[in-house]
């Protein structure tokens, strides 16, 4: 099962500079564990005491996982996962 994961600039030190990597897993938790296997250290930057870090946003097919079960959010083949740092809104 292939899931494309887009990596923000700040985390590309863990992916040899790659903007996107492939991973696999039925849930976000499993996907992050899979990523950790190939890119050691990345998990600790995303997860803290069993939950997503406060300033890390993760989206499955553009939907925020915090409203889809968080780390338990389910994944299917072909899903796209985007990781982004939290930023303040734009035209405010």
């Amino acid at each position: 099962m292939a899931i494309e994961v887009r990596i923000p600039t700040i985390l590309r030190t863990y992916t040899d500079g790659a903007k996107a990597v492939d991973g696999s897993g039925d849930t976000l938790q499993a996907l992050i564990d899979d990523l950790e296997g190939n890119h050691p250290g990345i998990k600790e930057r995303l997860v803290e005491s069993g939950d997503l870090r406060r300033f890390v946003n993760v989206y499955i097919n553009d939907e925020d996982v915090r409203f889809m079960g968080g780390l338990d959010a389910e994944l299917s083949d072909g899903d796209q996962v985007v990781v982004l740092p939290a930023v303040a809104g734009g035209a405010r």
Partner: peptide, 24 residues
């Protein structure tokens, strides 16, 4: 996003996740 450090992000003080049902 380029220079954002993941530890120094910003979530507005007003934001209460429980008041939102989904976010895109």
């Amino acid at each position: 996003y380029g220079l954002r450090n993941l530890d120094e992000g910003f979530v507005p003080e007003l934001y209460d996740e429980s008041l939102i049902d989904s976010r895109f």
